[in-house]
Design a protein around this nucleic acid. Structure first.
Lengths: 108, 108
DNA sequence: CAGCATCCACGGAGATACTG
DNA sequence: CAGTATCTCCGTGGATGCTG
């Protein structure tokens, strides 16, 4: 989205980043379970498929909101997901947003 | 989106609320031009059509993020759009989010 | 001027089946 | 176990034309 003002760009990027159906949820779970593996992660997100989990993770990786570490040189492989420094900065803000949302949107 | 944790609900609602292609932009413009009219508003949002402006405004009205005041008893009608008390609380948070987005997403 | 009903196109979500 | 390649389907954005 283009914008004539100075702030929409940043916000819009944030929104886009978390726009997927699962991304925010996944991001949150990783933040609460640093180093969580693929399958554990999938079990924490009800109903999600391999496909959508991968796609969402890749999107978050692209934005450097999470990082991936591979362990195990041979199959079965294993991977661990972590937040990055910059995404950790975001957490308090998200918590505030959540409070506002619960307070002002859920009970209108 | 369902979630097993305590905060996703609020955040998700916020995200959904601003999920449209134009809503955030419109919200911002209204915040900067309290009482702005329909046409002025449309001129501030490049490329938007009547249709999409209306739809976006209605979505924001539904969530009580903006309010509408009608002026003029006969055609041509006129309407003014304002933020609401609760949405005004959101502004500082959005500014912070924007800073973070500009800082952490736009220059990776 | 402000707002709405309708129809269409496109992109992303999702199912399925497959690989290193 | 972790990740990928297609294909389908549906929701949302968008164009057009109409109304109080």
């Amino acid at each position: 989205m283009q914008s004539t003002d100075k702030w929409s760009c940043g916000i819009t990027k944030v929104l886009d980043t978390f726009s997927g159906k699962w991304r925010l949820n996944i991001f949150w779970i990783i933040s609460q379970n640093d180093g969580i593996g693929f399958n554990k992660l999938r079990n924490q997100v009800p109903e999600i498929t391999n496909m959508m989990l991968i796609r969402s993770l890749n999107a978050l990786l692209l934005e450097n909101l999470i990082s991936k570490k591979l362990t195990g040189s041979k199959a079965p492989f294993h991977s661990e997901y972590h937040l990055t420094d910059k995404s950790r900065e975001l957490l308090p803000l998200l918590l505030e947003l959540n409070d506002w949302g619960n307070h002002s949107l859920l009970k209108p």
